[in-house]
Design a binder for these strands. Sequence first.
DNA 1: CTTTACAGCGCAAACGTTTACCGCAATACG
DNA 2: CGTATTGCGGTAAACGTTTGCGCTGTAAAG
Lengths: 363, 363
Amino acid sequence: MGRRGPTLHEIARDAGVSIATVSRVARGVGQVSPETRRKVQEAIDRHGFRPHHAGRALVKRRHAALGIVFPGLSGPYYSDVIAGFEEEALKARVSVLIMGTHFLRQSVDMVFDMADRVDGLAVMGGVIPEGAIRRLVDRGVPVVLLASAPLVGVPTVRTENLAAMARLTTHLLADHGYENLVFVGNPDGSPDATYRWQGFLQAHHRLGVEPPKEPIRVGLQQSHGFIAVSRLLDENQRPRAIVCANDETALGAVVAVMDRGLRVPEDVAVTGFDDISMAGLAASGLTTVHQPMQELGAETARRLLRHVEGQLDVSLDRVLETQVVIRGSCGCGATDAHGARGVDADTSTKRPSRSSQVTRRKK
Amino acid sequence: MGRRGPTLHEIARDAGVSIATVSRVARGVGQVSPETRRKVQEAIDRHGFRPHHAGRALVKRRHAALGIVFPGLSGPYYSDVIAGFEEEALKARVSVLIMGTHFLRQSVDMVFDMADRVDGLAVMGGVIPEGAIRRLVDRGVPVVLLASAPLVGVPTVRTENLAAMARLTTHLLADHGYENLVFVGNPDGSPDATYRWQGFLQAHHRLGVEPPKEPIRVGLQQSHGFIAVSRLLDENQRPRAIVCANDETALGAVVAVMDRGLRVPEDVAVTGFDDISMAGLAASGLTTVHQPMQELGAETARRLLRHVEGQLDVSLDRVLETQVVIRGSCGCGATDAHGARGVDADTSTKRPSRSSQVTRRKK
DNA sequence: CTTTACAGCGCAAACGTTTACCGCAATACG
DNA sequence: CGTATTGCGGTAAACGTTTGCGCTGTAAAG
């Protein structure tokens, strides 16, 4: 166990120079004669020398790594955010440490462990308590919050949730004239869900419609949507439309509805949020809100990188735009079956619909 | 920029002891009187001391980190494998470095960079050339191959692809009596695709049926399946069944078929591979092969951990079982619409079907 | 009262880098 | 021919830990 490969000293001995010279040659800096450089380079190649990361990190006081913390790791949402984050980090030649808290209590400790081996940390909203974030920041750890409610003194990157959900809900209420909507999702579960629930409420209030007292509080996975809606229908409380906190629960909801022999959207309309790449597939295509998940990750990485350099205003709160995407599951143009987003996004038709600021997307 | 937080020295000075004692107290080891321990612990708490990772890594010659390398990062497949890997690593209190090569040439260098800062590396099959793997191993880097063709001297963890695909293809050929099958996927793209193509061929040969000369060589994303099948149908070459290399392309294929006004499975049957959680949703539920992706990641992590400890037989080639899952898209029981796997897997009915070793799954 | 044992803790040597500083030799300049 | 200048490259001091070793002093054993 332990170290593999040669050190500066061995190369130095072999090449008959000092370790300083080897270090200079290896990094291609400093004043070294072509002659010496060649000789040293040969020794480096011969031994396959590569500098040990820890030694470098110690003296440079940089880990050359960024960390990102999520509640869990599986699911299309996380993977897209991670992909954007990682790609941007790689460009800056910085490694990415990843962690899912899995909702364990011990996970806060693990986040602190992680903080000790990276230069900066991206933390998704809601995964660890605010107090822990504060302590991290107080320790001097550069932190960027991701999809989180803003916290004073901590830069944030997120997407617009509230207004988008309000527009989507308004579309159901005003354009379709649906009454009796339900909301599936737990507002206390994550900041995203909180804002979406608020947008749902806001739309009702603006239109003078009484919203449901309570959302159906379940998690964000497909199975949660399925179970919640199955139960709802079994109780013979059939809503006209089901507004889900994200696409995965919405897809679960669609299955549950169809499972009871009902049709989407004729009997029950369903909407989602996120616009994951599968959203175009379900039944007649899921009406949802598009948010740029990959860009969310990428922007977070860029900000974090700047934060590490001390070049970021910590009061930053970047809000990325989102867009309502109308497909079939809300009841619009049922003939536009299964719009295939992600398949050919460039040619997707965007045109104003009945409700302004709403994009209708087909094929 | 650089270091934040106090060092052993500052705590030692403050507590009036030596750094050795502080180190011992911080780690809870060695002989320290209760009195001293208390005093030092107070100083540690007061300053919020946490040991600097690089210092420790240097002397312990351990990074306490594992790396995992994929071609890309987004998509349900990777996220599940990663989730399994990460969870297992976390249990061992080891960090996870993640990287997507994005099919760039420079990525091989980056893999070597990564190798310098982890204790072991999991590499997905096909992402970097075999020669690079060899060099990694020669340098003494513990490597475990993931979903790769076996390579002598390098432990491998993978899932059974060939036989499963042969069973699935046999089901289409023999049980359904379909002729004129096409295969969508690039056998040269990844080891998984290679084995699946071979299984497809094997089934044909065993039944004495002439297989297609060539597969339709496209990538593994949904859009690739959509485009490939759209083109195929536009050329008026309608196959009776489309066997896809994975679920995502299969889902793309389903959309393409429906887009032409054709029905799945009545006009064209479609099958996938992987059994991602969305597979239960598409149209009448995707017939596919279930493979334990999360377990694949977890098992890889466990093996890698043992490899790092020098306790792993490098000739290991672990093959995880897979299972054909029959849903509606192959033409079986069209009334079983949209089996919702993942929703309630425990209650899923498993019963022998016409073709042995095949599981029929509904709801 | 002397020896032995051992708990408690400090000293100092690693671990493998980077880099400020300095000395030396060769060149340029007056 | 003496003096600045400059290019090379070596010396050594960090960076922050862990840990083998050895020195104390007190307690137990003889």
